[in-house]
């Protein structure tokens, strides 16, 4: 890893934290508020690729666990990680990695639509696959019930994936970082 790689990993972890400053907002016909910070996760993968993106989120999650209040709503600490929604936070590490893996593989054919798909696979499906069973175990819920309860977040998550794809495509045109 070069100095520049280390700098990118660190700055995108800081960027994800800084997204906590943007208040969650409500979109029409979408039941749950949209949290900008989750877009940061997809951006790290889309812009930095698998290894650097995943590492970036690993640093972020480690700092949250160490007690820095970096999550939207100024939450942080080991309790958040071990709590019922901890799986969603931990899943950000593989989520950024998976988005980045697809982006690297399809770098030369990347467009808004396939990037949207990759963001949904990594940034939504991976997050649910880890987050929902975690919730079910910690809260003693049946898996199906936990899944049903999480469906209200799906429309918002797809919007986030679209925003991340649009932003990452603009960055790719002016500042390609994966196969530079």
């Amino acid at each position: 890893m070069t100095t520049r790689d280390m700098v990118f990993v660190a700055l995108f972890a800081a960027l994800t934290a800084a997204c906590a400053v943007f208040p969650p907002f409500q979109a029409p016909f979408v039941p749950a508020p949209i949290i900008v910070q989750n877009i940061g996760v997809m951006l790290a993968g889309s812009i930095l690729g698998a290894k650097r993106g995943g590492l970036s989120l690993l640093l972020f999650v480690v700092l949250v666990a160490l007690g820095l209040p970096l999550l939207t709503g100024w939450k942080g600490g080991f309790g958040v990680i071990l709590g019922p929604t901890g799986g969603f936070i931990l899943s950000w590490i593989p989520a950024a990695f998976v988005v980045g893996w697809f982006v690297e593989k399809y770098w030369h054919r990347l467009n808004f639509w396939n990037l949207l798909l990759f963001n949904v696979i990594g940034g939504v499906i991976v997050v649910y696959v880890i987050g929902i069973p975690w919730l079910a175990v910690v809260a003693n819920m049946e898996f199906g019930k936990a899944l049903a309860g999480s469906t209200i977040f799906i429309p918002g998550d797809v919007i986030k994936a679209a925003v991340a794809a649009a932003v990452a495509m603009i960055v790719k045109r002016s500042y390609p970082l994966v196969h530079a």
Partner: peptide
């Protein structure tokens, strides 16, 4: 640990920027 230090260094700056 150098990367962790850098993140801690740049979080306040980026948050001010975001603000």
């Amino acid at each position: 640990s150098m990367m962790l230090s850098m993140v801690i260094r740049f979080i306040p700056m980026m948050m001010r920027e975001a603000q």
